[in-house]
Design a protein around this nucleic acid. Structure first.
Length: 268
DNA sequence: CGGCATGTTTCGCC
DNA sequence: AGGCGAAACATGCC
């Protein structure tokens, strides 16, 4: 998925739905509870929020529709996809990959077209690989502090008492919400910390450097378009070419079961 | 064809 | 009990 940055891009793209009424919902029952249409039909969208990698449609009776994108989910609002193509996907958008379709009244802000049966959905969640999940009123209370605004103290507290490698811990939603594989590598790259370093061996300065990198690098990547817009861009990740900071060859290996790309020279 | 992919969840083992 | 690592999930793409 789409990491937290993509979820934030989609949260913003879904703002035009606020104030509209949900007219009908269709779901792929392998990915979403079948009663969604009964639960939410007729409710007004009061807000679109985000918790980590989850986008939440909050409706006026306080129920929340949670959209989780797995590895390959994409959001399309009023026919517009702010992220056209995900890395590791062709960019195809086939109707049979739709997992959620939601129609609203009025269908599009500022217009009141006739209520045709064939009108396009205001919101579609398209997910070929089907690892995404759609939920109603899910408990998100175990989510950790958000990566985009992570403070030094929050990260110190989140890692206290833990002994595992730092990168796998950063990927756990209860530790830090919103960080995915690409952003975790990017943040550690900027902080100068090797992904496999056990957190109980990190100095307070190193933990602070990681949190500082989150607050500075992630908003910049968000402005540029998301998780693939860091110094470790997808091409560099795949080729493991020279470090953009010092020219030393990047290393590409597995840490915590995921691919990690890092510089053995300046990340220690 | 083999292997890999922006993610969670579950199982089994300390 | 709780942390940790590996496997499972599901499908498309190179």
């Amino acid at each position: 998925m789409p990491e937290g940055l993509e979820a934030e891009i989609w949260r913003r793209s879904a703002q035009p739905l606020v104030g509209r009424t949900i007219r009908r919902i269709w779901v792929d029952e392998r990915c979403a509870p079948p009663e969604l249409d009964d639960d939410l039909r007729g409710a007004m969208v009061a807000a679109v929020e985000r918790v980590g990698k989850v986008v939440l449609l909050v409706v006026d009776d306080d129920r929340r529709l949670g959209l989780h994108f797995g590895m390959t989910g994409r959001l399309v609002i009023d026919g517009h996809a702010p992220i056209e193509r995900l890395e590791y996907a062709s960019g195809a958008d086939r109707p049979e990959w739709d997992r959620l379709r939601l129609w609203t009244d009025p269908p599009q802000a500022g217009r009141v077209p006739p209520d045709r049966a064939g009108s396009p959905p205001a919101l579609r969640l398209n997910d070929p690989r089907r690892l995404g999940r759609i939920s109603i009123d899910a408990d998100l209370s175990d989510a950790g502090p958000d990566a985009l605004t992570l403070t030094d103290d929050e990260l110190v507290a989140a890692l206290a008492g833990r002994r595992a490698a730092v990168k796998p811990l950063l990927l756990q939603a209860p530790v830090v919400a919103g960080l995915g594989n690409l952003c975790a590598d990017e943040v550690l790259f900027h902080a100068g910390v090797a992904p496999s370093r056990p957190v109980d061996e990190l100095s307070i300065e190193e933990i602070a450097a990681i949190a500082t990198a989150c607050r500075s690098v992630l908003p910049a990547m968000l402005d540029r378009g998301g998780s693939t817009h860091g110094l470790l861009d997808p091409g560099l990740r795949a080729s493991a070419g020279p470090c953009p900071l010092d020219g030393h060859p990047l290393r590409r290996d597995r840490v915590g079961g995921r691919t990690a790309v890092w510089c053995t020279h300046h990340q220690t």
